[in-house]
Design a protein around this nucleic acid. Structure first.
Length: 375
DNA sequence: GTACTTCAACACATTACGTCA
DNA sequence: GATGACGTAATGTGTTGAAGT
């Protein structure tokens, strides 16, 4: 009797994630049957070393396109990044025509404390527009800030030299404001900002992304950009070529598509996530089918075992007939001698039992694995 | 050489917005 | 027009490896 249980080539991973440091689980048939096994693997899911390496290599090659960190010189004595000479204020509107009341007027502790507790994302979406709009001119505050400006208008007139006063008052709350300003700049990821991943200069390269639409959001949430078909198609094409981008590629794509580098980066991150999700679904389907097949096989073998047991009990004398049978081991190709039919039947039954228990174990393992995978 | 810190990039989970039925 | 489902851009957080100290 032959028993074959094949679930794929052992040397070839069953699933795509098996080529990434698989932790294989081998389920062997009972006894010494080494070539009967069910092989499953769970990958760590991290990116491949190759991918990472290539990325790192490109990074090391000095092609870091990360834009220089933006320094928010709200105060004359604000700290300057290491190794950089004290720069010109990057926000000329702060030092010159301080139209912006929140930054130029009295800045009394009340409004500072109130605003610090707000979500500054909307606020600095607006301020970003101010900085990077044409010729760096000041465009004006967002709507929400406009309201604030009006409420402070009277105070502004009374306290015209507020900015100067503020900056000359180191013990004022202005310093804490400065800190919070930095942290929530533009609603961008705090760590991106801290890491200097700033694209303010290219922020408004796309006219679609800036402008009044965004200002209309005021202090509210983020404005979600919908990529055009062409942009998506182009990104898809480059994703087919490589799933990760080095800084140069990112910048080139961003320029080509009139997007911010950060947007390109995010698109690739999300795209990778979608790809992985899809692959996981495929793998789950495959595992489900494996599980079903194993269950069916297990059922069949159990049935066969029962039939053999029934045969044994119904024909006890036949089994005791002396006979010599030559059998060849399929794996080692050695001839073995079995003296009685009983022995043959017993061996057959033992094999069937072992196989049945094997498939039971394999099925159980598969079920456990599927359960772990949340299926 | 080793321990520690910093940085950049990533995965992953989640949120929030735009679109469509 | 309101609403819920869905796709996806954007954000927040934790991890990792390389480089610097």
């Amino acid at each position: 009797m032959e028993l074959a249980l094949s679930l794929g080539e052992a040397q070839k991973p069953l699933f795509s994630f098996l080529d990434k440091s698989p932790q294989q689980l081998m389920v062997h048939a009972g006894g010494s049957n080494k070539d009967l096994g069910f092989c499953m693997g769970l990958g760590g899911g991290r990116r491949s070393e190759k991918d990472h390496q290539s990325n790192e290599d490109e990074r090391r090659s000095g092609s870091s396109s990360s834009d220089p960190p933006v320094q928010l010189d709200l105060l004359p004595f604000s700290p300057v990044p290491r190794g950089q000479p004290p720069a010109q204020p990057r926000f000329p509107w702060l030092a010159q025509n301080c139209k912006y009341p929140l930054l130029s007027t009295s800045f009394n502790s009340f409004c500072i404390r109130a605003l610090i507790r707000l979500d500054f994302r909307g606020l600095f979406e607006g301020s970003q527009d101010m900085v990077t709009s044409e010729q760096g001119s000041f465009n004006g505050p967002a709507k929400g800030l406009e309201v604030h400006r009006k409420s402070l208008a009277a105070e502004e007139t009374e306290d015209g030299a507020a900015a100067a006063a503020m900056s000359s008052s180191p013990n004022s709350t202005a310093s804490s404001f400065q800190m919070d300003f930095a942290v929530y700049r533009s609603g961008r990821n705090k760590r991106d900002f801290e890491a200097g991943n700033n694209e303010v200069e290219t922020e408004r390269a796309s006219s679609r992304n800036g402008s009044d639409e965004e200002l209309e959001n005021g202090l509210g949430g983020r404005k979600k950009l919908r990529l055009t078909k062409d942009q998506s198609a182009f990104l898809e094409e480059s994703f087919k070529e490589h799933h990760t981008l080095n800084p140069k590629q990112k910048l080139a794509l961003a320029n080509q598509l009139n997007l911010r580098p950060r947007q390109v980066e995010v698109w690739f991150q999300n795209r990778r996530a979608r790809t992985k999700l899809k692959q996981t679904e495929v793998d789950c389907e495959y595992l489900k089918r494996c599980c079903e097949n194993l269950t069916e096989e297990n059922r069949r073998l159990h049935k066969e075992l029962q039939e053999l047991r029934a045969l044994k009990t119904s024909q006890p004398f036949y089994m005791q007939l002396p006979a010599t049978t030559l059998t060849m081991c399929p794996s080692c190709e050695r001839v073995a001698t079995t003296t009685t039919a009983t022995a043959t039947a017993t061996a057959t039954m033992a094999a069937a039992t072992a196989a049945a228990s094997t498939t039971t174990t394999a099925t159980t393992s598969t079920t456990l694995t599927l359960a772990k995978a949340g299926i």
